[in-house]
Design a protein around this nucleic acid. Structure first.
Lengths: 325, 325
DNA sequence: ACAGTATTATCACATTTGTGAATAATCAAA
DNA sequence: TTTGATTATTCACAAATGTGATAATACTGT
C-alpha cells in the first residue's frame, strides 16, 4: 500500500521542492543541491523532470490590446460616451473570456464608493462578473434589474450573479423576487409593485451605472429563450415587430426604435423609460457575429453610454451601419 | 490616446513574446535575440523585466500526500470501506481546497458511465464540485437529494452545484423543486410526492453513490443555519435530542443513532432509511476542528462508505472515539 | 544473499546566462 | 534643433546551467 504510489509521490514532492526553490525563490541550482543533498547536475536534471511531469506550470499573461482608432469611430458615429474595442487574439485565449476581463476592468474604473449599479444579465455579464477581481470593499448596491427565478435549465443563476458581484465589490445585493416574464401585464405590474420588490424598484432611481448584455431574438442564439425566459410565441411577436435584439426586458429594431411594448409590459423589471429618464449610464458588453445586428440596434437607441466589444464585431457593426442607414 | 498607455502595452507585448519563446517554447536567449531583433543581453534583461511585471506566472503543483496508515486505522475501527486521509500543508494551500481536490479525484475513481449519483450539499461538496475536472462525458444522472430553493443569503446555490457537476460529468441534473424544510410534515410529504419531484425520488433507487458533506448543528458553524435552511427552533430541537451533526436532512447523535426524526419528516429529500435500504455507497467529505464530533457520529451510523478528510481531523476523530466509546 | 536494473554521483567541458561599465541611439520636451 | 533623460548596444567576463560518459550506489524481486 505504501509501495509504488508512495515512491512516486515522494518523487513529486522532491521535484516540487526543487522547482519551488529554483523558480519561485530564485535560488541557484548549486545552493539547492546543498540543501537537498544531491549533485548540482542532478538538480539540473530534476528541474527538467519537474517540467516534464507537469509539476511546474508556467503561463504567460498577455496584455489585452485595444484599438483606439476604431473606438473613436464608434463613439463619434453613434454619439456614445466611451467605447473599448479589443483586438482578437485567435490562438491565445477565448474572446468571450477576454471580453469579460476587459469589461470588468472598465467597470472597475467607473465605480466608486457608495454607488448604486444595476445588472441586466446575459452571458457576457456573467463572464464579466466571473472575471471581476475583488479588492477594496466599496459598499456598492448591486441591483438585479429583471426578475428570474426559474433558471433550472439556464447555465447561470441571476441571483447568484448579483450576489457574486455584490460580494466582490464589498456591497449589498438587491434581488427581484419574481419570474422574468408573466402571462398577464397586470400580474407583472403587481409584482413590480409588490412589497417584496419595492426595495429594488425604489433604488433604481439612484442607479448610476447599468452593466448590460445584449440579447438576440433568434432561437439558436437567444440565451433568454434557451433559459425559458422567453417562449416561441414571445419571440414570434418580437420578430413580427422587427425587433433585432434586447437588453433585459425591452427590445429594439435595427433603427433603434423600442418595440415589443406588450412584451415589456409583461416583464418584471426596469422599463426602458426609467433608463432614459434617469439618465443612467449603460455599459453594454457583447461580441460575436450574431450580436452585430443587436448591437447596432442598441447603439441607435441612444441608451448606450459605453460599448465594450472586440475588433471584429466593432468593424462589422460599423460597416452594417453604413449599409443600413 | 495612443501615447503613454500604448507604449506600455507594446512593451508588455514584447515581454510576453520573449517570455513565451523562452519559457514555453524553450528557445535559447540567443535565438530569441535574432528573431526579436535585440541584443542577447537585452533578452536576458527583458526576461527579468517580464517576471517583475507579472507577465510570467509560475506555479508549482504539489502532490497531495496521503497517510495510508491512519486511513487503515479509520477503516478498521469504523468498518467503512475506504478512507482517504491527506496531510495538511500549512504554508502551501488552503486545506479546504485540497479536500475538494482529493475528493474530486476519489469520486472520479468511483464513477463509470451511466451511473446515477446523488449529492447532499455542503461547503466541502461545493469545493469538490469546483475542483472536479471535466473530461470524457460519462452520461451520469446527478440527483439533488434535498430541496433548497431559497438560497438568497447562502454562499452557494444547490441547483447550480447539481447543474455544474452534471455538466462536468457530461450527464443530466435532476433537481428537487422545493424548499429544504417545511413547517408541516404533511406539506413536506406532499412535496416529496409532487409530480414535479417524482422524477428525482424515483431515481434515488438507482443511486450507486452519494457525495455528502457533514453539517454541524451549532449556529456558528452550521452553513444550513446560516443559509436559513434551519432556524433557531430547529437547532434547539436537534440539540435537545443530542444531535451532533447531520447529512442533509437526517441527524445523528455521538453514538450514531438517528435522531430528530420530526425534523427529518419536515424535510423534502431522501430519508436515511432510503440510504440504508438501497445500500448506497456514501462518500463523505469534511474536515476541520468543528467537524470532528459530527464525523464521529456519522461514522458510527454505519452509513458511511468512504471518508475523505485531513490528517489532523482524522487523528482527532480517532482519539475522540477512544474517549467516548 | 544475489543478480539485474534503475538511479545517482562524479567529473569534465561546452553552452548558456547574468551583469557591469562605457557608448550609442532614441525620444520627449523646451 | 538642441538638450537631458531614458533606453538599448556593445563588449568582456564571471557565473550558472546542460549534458555525456563512466563509476558507484540503491533498489527489486527471487
Amino acid at each position: 500500500m505504501v509501495s509504488k504510489k508512495s515512491v512516486t509521490t515522494k518523487r513529486l514532492e522532491l521535484l516540487a521542492d526543487v522547482a519551488e526553490s529554483y523558480y519561485i525563490q530564485g535560488k541557484t541550482q548549486a545552493s539547492i543541491s546543498d540543501e537537498v543533498g544531491v549533485t548540482r547536475s542532478m538538480v539540473s536534471r530534476l528541474l527538467t523532470e519537474a517540467r516534464n511531469e507537469g509539476v511546474v506550470e508556467i503561463s504567460i499573461i498577455r496584455p489585452i490590446i485595444t484599438d483606439d482608432q476604431i473606438a473613436d469611430q464608434i463613439m463619434q458615429r453613434f454619439g456614445i460616451r466611451n467605447a473599448v474595442i479589443f483586438e482578437n487574439k485567435p490562438q491565445h485565449a477565448s474572446s468571450n473570456k477576454t471580453l469579460g476581463q476587459i469589461t470588468a476592468t472598465t467597470l472597475k474604473k467607473y465605480i466608486s464608493p457608495n454607488m448604486t449599479i444595476g445588472i441586466i444579465f446575459g452571458k457576457a455579464v456573467r463572464d464579466t462578473i466571473r472575471a471581476f477581481e475583488k479588492d477594496k470593499p466599496l459598499n456598492i448596491k448591486v441591483l438585479q434589474l429583471f426578475g428570474a427565478v426559474d433558471s433550472t435549465s439556464s447555465s447561470y443563476d441571476v441571483r447568484e450573479l448579483v450576489r457574486e458581484l455584490a460580494n466582490k465589490m464589498g456591497g449589498t445585493p438587491y434581488y427581484i423576487n419574481a419570474p422574468f416574464i408573466m402571462k398577464n401585464p397586470d400580474t407583472a405590474r403587481e409584482l413590480r409593485e409588490n412589497i417584496a420588490n419595492k426595495g429594488v424598484f425604489n433604488l433604481i432611481h439612484d442607479c448610476q451605472y447599468i452593466l448590460a448584455g445584449i440579447g438576440s431574438i433568434h432561437k439558436q442564439h437567444s440565451t433568454f429563450y434557451q433559459a425559458g425566459f422567453l417562449n416561441d410565441e414571445d419571440l414570434r411577436i418580437l420578430q413580427q415587430q422587427n425587433a433585432v435584439g434586447g437588453m433585459g426586458g425591452y427590445h429594439f429594431d435595427i433603427h433603434g426604435n423600442i418595440v415589443g411594448q406588450e412584451i415589456e409590459n409583461r416583464i418584471v423589471g426596469i422599463t426602458h423609460e426609467a433608463i432614459l429618464n434617469n439618465n443612467i449610464a449603460t455599459i453594454v458588453t457583447a461580441r460575436g457575429e450574431n450580436k452585430v445586428t443587436p448591437i447596432l440596434g442598441a447603439l441607435r437607441t441612444n441608451m448606450v453610454h459605453t460599448l465594450i466589444t472586440d475588433l471584429e464585431t466593432a468593424k462589422s457593426v460599423l460597416s452594417l451601419d453604413e449599409t443600413l442607414h
